[in-house]
């Protein structure tokens, strides 16, 4: 579903992604973990070209990601993305947030878009919030609305860029539950997160990044119980002790 080959990216002098190769199969849930500044968010943003890499290619569902314009917009329509800071459209109600792209990009009629939106809101557990503005919702509710917004495009892949990092601790669970449900339904997912419990529970594969490289990857049980590299052992020792 996603194939990344030889991806290299620099921010000025800083080499943030080094020779990244990554293959995500249809229906696979890949969780990317690693210390801050390891390039995992940048990698996630390169997958739908919110960031452009200087070298290498990203192929989504057999199609090389186009550089710009309408082709790129079409690709992005098929790739859902959930951000750390939700990024719901502040001037639109939750329902309007969800119906905008299906109507404008896919040409879905308003009644149908609204029906789908309400179904999705019910699915993420905030059916009663449809008429509210994002600012009137809690962080957890906003993030669930953002997930519903991405799902409304019926994406082939969902990208999650630290979806729970901006949430109060008591709201992390409700968002992770929605994501776990999605994973169980067979959605192809790439999740950048610091939630080790989620990685262990929901991931088919854990990818560990450090210093812009993929250092180690494997099934979650194997990775968490028997990390192969010092870098991963060191990282896990720091995050799992508390």
């Amino acid at each position: 579903m996603i194939r990344v080959r030889g991806l290299n990216k620099w921010f000025g002098e800083h080499h943030v992604l080094r020779d990244i190769d990554l293959h995500v199969a249809r229906g696979e849930v890949v969780v990317v973990i690693g210390p801050s500044g390891s390039g995992k968010s940048t990698l996630c943003r390169c997958l739908n070209r919110l960031e452009t890499a200087q070298q290498g290619e990203v192929v989504i569902d057999g199609v090389p990601a186009p550089l710009e314009g309408r082709e790129l917009a079409r690709l992005r329509a098929d790739v859902g993305m959930v951000f750390q800071s939700f990024n719901l459209f502040q001037h639109k109600t939750v329902l309007e947030n969800i119906t905008l792209a299906p109507m404008k990009v896919r040409g879905v009629s308003r009644p149908e878009a609204e029906r789908t939106a309400r179904e999705l809101l019910a699915r993420v557990g905030i059916g009663e919030q449809a008429g509210k503005l994002p600012g009137q919702l809690s962080g957890g509710q906003q993030q669930r609305a953002a997930i519903a917004r991405a799902l409304a495009m019926r994406p082939k892949v969902m990208l999650f860029d630290e979806p729970t990092s901006a949430l109060d601790p008591e709201m992390v669970g409700e968002v992770l539950d929605v994501m776990t449900g999605l994973a169980a339904d067979g959605m192809t997912m790439v999740v950048v997160t610091h939630e080790m419990g989620f990685a262990r529970r929901a991931a088919d594969r854990v990818v560990f990044m450090a210093d812009g490289q993929i250092v180690e990857q494997g099934a979650p049980a194997a990775f968490f119980d028997r990390p192969q590299t010092d870098r991963a052992r060191d990282f896990l020792a720091k995050v799992l002790t508390h």
Binding site: L75, F83, L100, R149
Partner: peptide, 8 residues
Amino acid sequence: EAARALGL
């Protein structure tokens, strides 16, 4: 970014 990520 959110708008573009949705394919607008």
